[in-house]
Design a protein around this nucleic acid. Structure first.
Length: 104
DNA sequence: GTGTTGACTTCGT
DNA sequence: GACGAAGCCAACA
C-alpha cells in the first residue's frame, strides 16, 4: 500500500468538510477508501496534522469531540466548532448532534 | 524487519 | 446500559 495515498485521501476528505459540519473518524476513513481504519485516521491527524486540515471537524461516532492535540485541546476544539455553527446536543457541549451537523 | 502504540469502532458478554 | 476484547492502518523505537 502507498502510504502517501492514504494520507492524501484522508487530507482530501477532511479538507472537504464545510464549516458548520462535522464527520466521524469512521466516515472519514470510509470516504477515503479505508473503511475500518478509524484509528489510522486519528494517528495520522495526531502526528501529521496540517494547517489546512480542519481536524477539529472530525469527531467520534458517538458525537463526542474526542481528542485534540492542538492549542486549547478539546476545549478549543469544541468552541471552534460552535463558532462555525455546529449544533451541540449535549448540555456540556461535548457531544455534536450528528443528525444535524454531520457532513452529507 | 519486527513489535508496540495510538486523537477509534464495533461486536460480544 | 456498561465493560472488555478484537480489529482496522500508519508511524515510531
Amino acid at each position: 500500500m502507498n502510504t502517501t495515498d492514504f494520507k492524501s485521501a484522508i487530507h482530501t476528505v477532511v479538507k472537504g468538510i464545510p464549516a458548520g459540519k462535522v464527520m466521524t473518524y469512521s466516515d472519514v476513513a470510509a470516504t477515503a477508501g479505508f473503511p475500518g481504519a478509524s484509528r489510522a485516521v486519528g494517528s495520522l491527524m495526531r502526528k501529521n496534522y496540517d494547517s489546512s486540515i480542519p481536524c477539529h471537524r472530525v469527531v467520534k461516532s458517538d458525537g463526542l469531540v474526542g481528542q485534540y492535540n492542538r492549542e486549547g485541546g478539546s476545549c478549543s476544539k469544541t468552541e471552534r466548532l460552535q463558532a462555525e455553527g455546529v449544533i451541540f446536543k449535549d448540555e456540556l457541549q461535548k457531544r455534536v448532534d450528528l443528525s444535524i451537523s454531520r457532513c452529507v
